[in-house]
Design a protein around this nucleic acid. Structure first.
Length: 583
RNA sequence: GACCCCGUAGCUCAAUGGAACAGAGCAUCGGCCUUCUAAGCCGAGGGUUGCAGGUUCGAGUCCUGCCGGGGUCGCCA
């Protein structure tokens, strides 16, 4: 149960009874009434703004409305204390018994605690990574992969039907360059001296095996042929090989893509033409000349007539070209077709996860989605900032030209998938992220991965000890039967309140499309738990295991199990494995 | 020139439909190891939320303008 929702329901009931008794007038707007945790815990467990919101239309002062409401609420058994404060807030304290039931919620539900029906089974498409298939994935892609994957988990937990998707940009000039680079490695594999890799081709060594495979499969067949003969074949072979690398990288970081969509297939199937004619039917396509951007002109700029999409009709700043001067579709054109395809597959909610360098494309893509769906479909674009790699404070340089960049597999091999995933979620997506190879594996409180995992392991350790002493099971189901009335200390109850906030947190994080909030929340839980653990050092009566009081020990074990469960539940959404022992 | 993101303690960052005194950690200072893992904990100081207006009973949050940092701006994706 989300106790904030439950309390809001109680508040609304009280307001309605005040209306029917004539204390408050009818026709009030109850929608903007909320029940939230107060900033200052000394104010209470929850607070409602109901009186502030309602007072205006009643002709009463907020404090008067609050007094009425407080009197009505006072009868609810879930509450132990109701008071009016400030301009007219009603502050509420929850009864111990009500809180004990919330801990029981956690124990009964296990890691599915916090599951929600917010999404009502609505289909959501989450597209992430979607890197060019021209090489292995690098750290920046890892951030997109982890963010997208965790967001997808989060939406699943809140009742959305999620499809995780990767758009393979295998139709552009980059792929021609890849094919030529592969051809070079193919010649090399056939003992030709290729000398230096020419400027403009991909120098990475990951293309060596591709050349060897081509040589083994085709012999010297493509050696003497003209480029236009071998290019189409090598495009396919090379992108397939690169997608194998990429799948390996995705797998290494635990990103599970459901659907891979190919741009070239989209183009070949005529989907781009279809999308264009669809827009043309709406009068949104015209031949025109774009104005040059103000300020610094791009090199070789000259006015040119081209096929334009009237994206300004949907809030974009300028209209956008759909065709290049060579007659091929622009990347934007095929992306329009791709999003039309997603809409056609029944997705009215789409989330695209892009690097911040694509920010300029957000408006045009939203415009296209609006145009294609008649404003029925919604696109949210989540941009993530760069990852700055360092090692012990020294920046790690990545040179794409030299082919020396850190791949996802490199980083996962060194620090492990769980560390990579956790760290990637310790910043808001639109804030830059520092990733220090030394700091993320450090065993100290500065390292959030360690801090949270340690709390989980410490909880498991306490439970192992308790099980040994009490000779009992310490799973949630067994501990749910403990006499939780024994949990009366303020710190115990505060911990339960924190755990009870998980259902609310998961919903707000899902609505905001912000999985990082989970990392911050479970860090808070870990912190509260470490604090409680240390309280026991000063005061033996506050230890989890209390000699000669098996009943209290069992009740506290239930609380510890609750902590471990909520941390594990959060880690599950983040795609991180909770550890039971620190090694 | 235009658009987008960011600007919160000395540093790195939070603040969940606007709400009562803006929170953590690091660093600084003062405490705490015969212990369920000190791989940690407790306490203190530290702020005109970049600036100036506006909306509101109430603004870090919404609106306008400016300042500073980053990103992007037809035929790369």
């Amino acid at each position: 149960m989300d106790y904030f929702k439950h309390l809001r329901y109680i508040v609304l009931n009280s307001v309605e009874s005040l209306i029917s008794s004539g204390a408050l007038p009818t026709g009030l707007d109850l929608e903007s009434i909320n029940v939230e945790p107060p900033r200052d815990p000394s104010h209470g467990d929850v607070a409602t703004n109901a009186a502030l919101v309602l007072a205006g239309k009643t002709g009463l002062k907020p404090r008067e409305v609050a007094e009425f409401l407080a009197a009505a609420l006072d009868r609810a058994s879930e509450l132990s204390e109701v008071s009016v404060a400030g301009p007219g807030f009603v502050n509420i304290r929850l009864s111990d018994a009500f809180l004990h039931d919330r801990l029981r919620d956690v124990l009964d539900a296990g890691t599915s605690y916090g599951d929600s029906d917010l999404g009502q089974g609505q289909a959501v498409n989450v597209e992430y990574v979607s890197a060019n298939p021209t090489g292995p994935l690098h750290v920046g892609n890892a951030r997109g992969a982890v963010f997208g994957d965790a967001l997808a988990n989060l939406l699943q937990k809140t009742g959305f039907r999620v499809t995780r998707e990767y758009y393979i940009n295998d139709a552009g000039t980059q792929v021609d360059i890849l094919a030529r680079s592969a051809h070079l490695r193919y010649r090399e594999a056939l003992d030709e001296d290729i000398e230096e890799i020419p400027e403009g081709l991909y120098p990475g060594e990951y293309l060596l095996p591709v050349g060897e495979r081509l040589a083994a499969e085709y012999g010297d067949r493509w050696l003497k042929e003209d480029e236009d003969k071998w290019l189409p074949n090598l495009r396919k072979a090379a992108t397939d090989a690169m997608m194998d690398l990429i799948r390996t990288d995705l797998d290494a970081v635990g990103a599970n893509i459901d659907v891979f969509s190919s741009e070239s297939e989209l183009v070949e199937a005529g989907r781009v033409d279809e999308a264009e004619s669809l827009l043309a039917d709406e009068g949104l396509i015209y031949e025109g000349v774009l104005e040059a951007p103000k300020g610094k002109l791009p090199e070789h700029w000259e006015p040119r007539e081209q096929t334009l999409f009237r994206s300004t009709a949907f809030g974009d700043d300028v209209d956008r070209p759909l065709k290049k001067s060579d007659g091929n579709w622009t990347y934007f054109a095929s992306d329009v077709a791709y999003h039309r395809d997603k809409i056609a597959r029944g997705f009215n909610t789409m989330i695209d996860v892009w690097g911040a360098d694509h920010a300029g494309h957000v408006k045009r893509m939203k415009a296209a989605v609006a145009a294609l769906s008649g404003n029925a479909a919604e696109l949210d674009v989540k941009l993530y900032q760069l990852v700055k790699l360092s090692r012990g404070g020294e920046p790690v340089h990545m040179s794409k030209r030299a082919g020396s960049f850190v791949t996802i597999s490199d980083i996962v091999d060194e620090v492990g998938k769980d560390v990579v995933r956790f760290i990637m979620l310790t910043r808001k997506n639109d804030a830059p992220l520092d990733f220090d190879f030394a700091a993320v594996t450090e065993q100290s409180r500065d390292n959030p991965v360690f801090y949270v995992q340690y709390a989980h392991a410490r909880a498991c350790s306490v439970l192992r000890n308790a099980a040994g002493i009490l000779q009992c099971e310490t799973d949630g189901k067994a501990l749910s039967r403990a006499n939780l009335d024994r949990l009366t200390h303020g710190d115990e109850l505060a911990l339960i309140k924190l755990l009870g906030g998980w259902p609310r947190l998961i919903e707000t994080a899902a609505e905001a499309h912000e999985p990082h909030r989970i990392a911050f929340y479970i860090h808070d839980v870990a912190s509260a738990f470490h604090q409680f653990w240390n309280r026991g050092k000063e005061d033996p009566a506050l230890r989890f295991i209390v000699d000669e009081d098996a009943e209290l020990t069992l009740a506290r074990a239930a609380l510890v199990r609750g902590v471990a469960t909520v941390i594990a539940s959060g880690l599950q959404v983040m795609g991180v494995e909770p550890v039971e022992e620190m090694r």
